[in-house]
Simulated assay, not measured.
Amino acid sequence: MPVFLVDAVAEAHAVLEGPEGRHAAAVRRIRPGERVDLTDGAGAVGECVVRETLKDGLVLDVLRRYTVPAPAPRIVVVQALPKGDRGELAVEMMTEVGVDVIVPWAASRSITQWRGDKAAKALGKWRATAREAGKQARRFHRAEVAELATTRDVVRLAEQAALALVLHEAAARPLARVELPGSGDIMMIVGPEGGVAETELAAFTEAGAVPALLGPTVLRTSTAGVAAAAVLQARTGRW
C-alpha cells in the first residue's frame, strides 16, 4: 500500500491534502476504493480506504489505527560529505535499510564542503531524500537527518553512544565480530573519499570509538554506510 506522511493520524476520517494530497491524487492517481496508509513518522499508522478523490487530495475512511514501536537499538550513521549527488544516494539507501539517524559530517578530507546558503540547500536535499525514501520503504518511523556536524561534534556523539564504531581499512577487528551492547545507540562513522585523517581517528578512539573493518574490498563512502548498517541490522536482530 502507498504510504503518506501526515502531521497526525485521525481516528475515523481524514482528508489528505497539501503536497502529499496532490501527489496522491494528481501523480499517483489513486481512486475511490483503493487502500492507502497514513503515518506521522513517529510510529502512528492509519490503514485507510479512499472514499472520494479531490482535485488536490483524498477523503479517507480510517479502518484501523495502531502504533509501531520504535526499532531498537537505534543505529546512527555519521556520514562524511561525499562528492556530487552521492550524498543523496547514501541517504536514500541508508533510509531504505532502516538507519535511524544520519549525521552529515564535514571531515577534514571531504572534497565537498557545505558553506553558507549551500549548506541549507544541501541539508534540505538530504532531508527530502530521507522523507521520500522512508515512504517508499514503508517506514513508519522517519529517518532523522541531523544538522551538519564538525569533528568535535562527532567526538561528543561518540562519547554518548553505547557503542561507537569507525569504519577503517586498517582495523584488525571485523565489524561482524565486534561485541555489541545490550541496549543504547550504536553509532558508525563513515569517512570521506580520502579516508579518515589520523588526527580524526585518534580523537574518535580517545572518545571510545572502536575501529572496525567492513570487509576485504574497498567501498565508496556513499555505499559503506548502507553495507555496514545491513550487517548491524542482522546482528542486532532488527532484521
Rank of each mutant, 00 (worst) to 15 (best):
L167I: 03
G98S: 12
T217H: 03
A146I: 11
H23T: 14
T221G: 11
S108E: 05
P73E: 05
V49D: 13
P192G: 04
A202G: 05
P32M: 07
A137G: 08
I75Y: 02
V196L: 08
A107P: 10
A164L: 09
A143V: 15
G134P: 06
A146R: 06
S183D: 15
T199G: 10
R156G: 10
E34V: 09
P104K: 08
D56K: 15
L157I: 13
E96I: 07
A203R: 11
G116H: 10
W114E: 11
I111N: 11
A122Y: 08
V226K: 00
R74W: 03
R139K: 13
V9F: 05
A12C: 05
P192K: 00
R238V: 07
V3R: 14
A8I: 04
A143H: 03
A202N: 09
G18E: 07
T112K: 09
E11D: 12
V49A: 12
R28W: 06
P73Q: 12
G195Y: 00
F4L: 12
M94Q: 10
M187P: 00
Q113F: 10
R139Y: 05
A229H: 01
A106L: 15
Q233K: 08
T67S: 03
K55A: 11
P181W: 12
E52T: 15
P73N: 12
G46H: 01
R127Y: 13
A164C: 08
E206D: 06
D7I: 12
Q160K: 15
E193Y: 01
R235W: 02
T53V: 15
L63Y: 03
K121W: 06
R115Q: 08
P82L: 14
G33Q: 07
G237I: 15
G225M: 03
R238I: 06
